[in-house]
């Protein structure tokens, strides 16, 4: 960690905040990185909120891992890596959706076996595609652990189109999806197409995971998809507030991580993950402290009442 800080300072981060900001946005690739990062963070936050509530974090992780063979395979075949990630993640989402979810929902039982298998197969075929490609696949590290260098204007356009589509569909199904998540039996009895929503959600999750993997890399999508939502839901139990807070946290984490990665020589995936984890740990500790204080306050009140 000390080495990281030292490197950060060495790369020209000064105490002049305005100057630092100017430096940050001077280069086009960095502007593109912030554009892409912001889009990805908003999509990750919105989808992550439902993913955590539905206990499908494991599925989200698997779908992100699948984006790696998608990209590697596309490069091997001479196609666009971005297109490859989306095709692979959405196909994997459909495979996972074909397996009926257990009534209790969540990533347990048969579900997790299928998801784990998909994930292992994905990593294995990714390695195969890299090997088939033969030459030194320059971006292997970036595919797995994230990069913000060299995001093209075209890539930003793709991200914004897919992101907008995901958010539009999510806005359309938000309320019934929430119902089906909280209370599948009653939702189904009230005419909510629970099974169909679950498939649609997984496809959206595939798109979102593929988007996020462009920034954090396949293996670290979890950080942006799950940590902001998990933190926000601990902070408030009001659905609207925690949803907005999730997106705010995701965007903030991404911006800070991008800045940190720019001023250091270390990969962005590390910064996204550690900052996200930092937020989560602080929130969790604060939450349990609050509960303890409340409990103590309540018991104190009771004993006073008894004394009186």
């Amino acid at each position: 960690m000390i080495a990281v800080v030292a490197a950060t300072v060495r790369e020209g981060l000064g105490w002049n905040l305005v100057d630092d900001m100017r430096q940050l946005f001077e280069l086009h690739f960095m502007v593109n990185a912030f554009r892409a990062g912001t889009i990805v963070a908003v999509v990750a936050g919105a989808m992550g909120w439902f993913t955590v509530l539905r206990r499908q974090s494991f599925a989200g992780h698997a779908l992100a891992v699948v984006s790696f063979p998608g990209a590697a395979g596309a490069v091997w075949l001479g196609a666009s890596a971005t297109a490859g990630t989306f095709v692979a993640s959405v196909s994997a989402a459909l495979v996972i959706a074909l397996v009926p979810r257990s009534a209790s929902g969540g990533g347990d039982g048969e579900d997790s076996a299928v998801i784990g298998t998909v994930q292992a197969l994905a990593l294995a075929s990714g390695v195969l595609f890299v090997s088939l490609y033969g030459g030194f696949l320059n971006s292997l590290n970036g595919l797995l652990f994230g990069t913000f260098l060299g995001i093209t204007d075209d890539q930003v356009t793709t991200l914004i189109i897919v992101g907008a589509a995901v958010l539009a569909v999510l806005a359309g199904i938000g309320r019934p999806l929430f119902f089906a998540t909280i209370d599948a039996d009653v939702a189904q009895a009230s005419g909510v197409p629970v099974r169909m929503l679950s498939v649609v959600f997984l496809v959206l999750l595939g798109c979102a995971a593929a988007e996020v993997s462009q920034i954090t890399g396949s293996l670290l999508v979890f950080a942006l998809l799950v940590l902001p939502a998990a933190s926000a839901q601990r902070l408030t139990s009001r659905p609207g507030s925690s949803f907005v807070l999730t997106i705010v946290l995701a965007v903030a984490i991404t911006w800070v991580a991008l800045a940190a990665a720019y001023f250091s020589v270390h990969p962005i995936g590390f910064f996204v993950t550690t900052i996200g984890l930092g937020v989560f740990v602080v929130v969790t500790v604060a939450q349990s402290a609050k509960v303890r204080i409340q409990r103590r306050g309540r018991s104190g009140f009771t004993s006073q009442g008894l004394a009186a």
């Binding site: 199904i173 309320r175 039996d185 009653v186 909510v192 139990s237 659905p239």
Partner: peptide
């Protein structure tokens, strides 16, 4: 049912509200 998961961070009133409009498309 047995019960809701202990870690479910959604208020009771939100669960009640789903009975009113949970099947309507869109987002509150």
């Amino acid at each position: 049912r047995r019960s809701f998961d202990q870690g479910l961070r959604v208020r009771g009133i939100d669960v009640v509200r789903l009975g009113a409009d949970g099947d309507r498309w869109g987002t509150p």
